[in-house]
């Protein structure tokens, strides 16, 4: 059952990601990104991170991607012309991506015991919620990083206001 869920949504996720790259219309790409985020949310949930899954859906698919499609619709962006692609991408990009992917896989497999891992579908069977634990950690041990991140977002908002303000 858990394996079936993982396979269905894993394949959906990868297919959405590929579709995102191959579609020529920005709105189709944006919708593929929504599919990727929703499938990721389901996979988070099967790993027992139900709060992360909900936050992923509400924040990313529900708010940020709506703004993406909003901007695409507002600017009336048309289909893009397919180009051959740059040489740098072929000679440095693809090998680089493969290298990073191999390195990460190697590290994760080697340090599996130190990093800790969740069983696939382990979070689906127990009814307990980990939200209380998340909030405890967030407001005690990780308080400084949390607050610094919110200041960073505030600075970004101020920057946007300054850029968008009319000169008069």
């Amino acid at each position: 059952m858990q394996l079936a869920l993982f396979l269905i949504f894993g394949i959906l996720c990868v297919a959405g990601a590929l579709n995102l790259l191959f579609q020529r219309h920005p709105i189709n790409s944006a919708l593929s990104l929504v599919v990727v985020m929703m499938s990721l949310a389901v996979i988070y949930w099967t790993l027992g991170a139900e709060f992360l899954a909900a936050a992923q859906v509400i924040v990313y698919s529900g708010a940020i991607m709506v703004l993406f499609t909003f901007v695409i619709m507002l600017l009336n962006a048309g289909e893009e012309v397919r180009t051959r692609g740059s040489k740098a991408a072929y000679f440095a990009g693809i090998p680089g991506v493969l290298g990073v992917f191999t390195l990460l896989t190697y590290i994760f497999l080697r340090e599996k015991s130190a990093l800790g891992y969740a069983n696939l579908g382990g979070g689906l069977n127990n009814g307990v919620s980990n939200i209380a634990e998340i909030s405890r950690v967030l407001f005690t041990d990780l308080l400084l990083p949390f607050e610094v991140t919110s200041v960073l977002i505030l600075v970004a908002i101020l920057g946007a206001v300054v850029l968008a303000r009319k000169e008069n």
Binding site: I27, L31, V34, M38, E50, F51, A53, A54, A55, V57, I58, S61, G62, A63, V66, T69, F70, M73, G127, V128, S129, I131
Partner: peptide, 26 residues
């Protein structure tokens, strides 16, 4: 379905519902 984050599920699904309206107009 008795979900331990039921409220967030409802909020999440309603926030996805906006795509129906946004896409229909476009």
């Amino acid at each position: 379905s008795d979900v331990n984050i039921g409220l967030l599920v409802i909020l999440g699904i309603t926030s996805i519902g906006v795509y129906g309206i946004a896409l229909s107009g476009w």
